[in-house]
């Protein structure tokens, strides 16, 4: 559940949120090397916006850090590659390339800033509003509806899986891992069959309420001044990031 779900705080237009945060995320991820200051400005701006909307900046920061291990893993070898300028530091028996270390730092900073933007999007916009925004951005209604169904039933399915796991474990007495793996396979198979069964019933429920295969688009909303300002500032920052090295 996002922080925004079910709250009464200011809820920005989802289209503006999607456009602005995605724009900032893409600009951050593709920032020029050495553009640390613009990245810091973007991060500060995003944290300011989320705080102004009543969302804990600490929570957003904490969640955005999830990307750091992945960035480090992806670029871990960069400091140990050949340096085109031949500048190295010796750390014990290893030679660390200055260029490579800079690349690692830059890639991590870009990844983290992009993650911060996307976490801010999901924290400040309930999932149903994101879907609504995607609908208003003219994504195919079938895609938006299918995503909504998948999101809705992912929770129900995971609950089913948890109950089945509990039921399975309550009848286990320290069996070997191979036996456990077999039992888990049965659980997954059963879950799949249950999902099919549920899909059938959901379809029946939709059909009985007049669903004929056509999807209804979301309502159009009037843009408000804070939303327009948010988009303009985001756009300016994104352009600035591309220009400043």
């Amino acid at each position: 559940m996002s922080s925004a779900e079910g709250s009464a705080r200011y809820e920005a237009d989802p289209v503006i949120n999607i456009l602005s945060f995605t724009l900032l995320a893409v600009a951050s991820a593709t920032a020029l090397r050495g553009a640390y200051m613009p990245l810091i400005v973007i991060a500060a701006f995003v944290l300011f916006v989320t705080s102004a909307r009543g969302i804990s900046a600490a929570s957003v920061l904490k969640k955005s850090l999830v990307v750091i291990p992945f960035a480090l893993m992806a670029f871990a070898f960069a400091p140990f590659m050949e340096d085109p300028h031949g500048v190295y530091y010796a750390i014990g028996p290893a030679r660390v390339s200055i260029e490579g270390a800079g690349f690692l730092l830059n890639a991590s900073a870009r990844s983290w800033t992009a993650a911060l933007c996307l976490v801010s999007l999901t924290e400040s916009t309930p999932f149903n509003r994101i879907l609504e925004g995607l609908g208003r951005l003219r994504l195919p209604p079938s895609f938006v509806t299918t995503t909504a169904f998948a999101h809705r039933y992912a929770f129900t399915l995971s609950n089913d899986a948890r109950r089945m796991k509990t039921a399975m474990e309550s009848r286990m007495y320290g069996e070997r891992w191979l036996w456990r793996a077999g039992a888990a396979g049965v659980v997954i198979g059963t879950l799949f069959l249950r999902s099919l069964d549920r899909a059938e019933r959901v379809h029946q429920a939709a059909v009985s309420r007049g669903f004929d295969g056509s999807f209804h688009g979301p309502a159009q909303e009037k843009l408000r001044l804070p939303d327009i300002m948010f988009l303009v500032v985001s756009l300016t920052l994104a352009v600035m990031l591309r220009l400043v090295a």
Binding site: A148, R152, Y153, T156, R198, R201, V202, A206
Partner: peptide
Amino acid sequence: RMVGIVFQNPDDQLFCP
């Protein structure tokens, strides 16, 4: 339009976000 059915399991009936 005339007949409304409420299913036994509300998780089958409630499928929207």
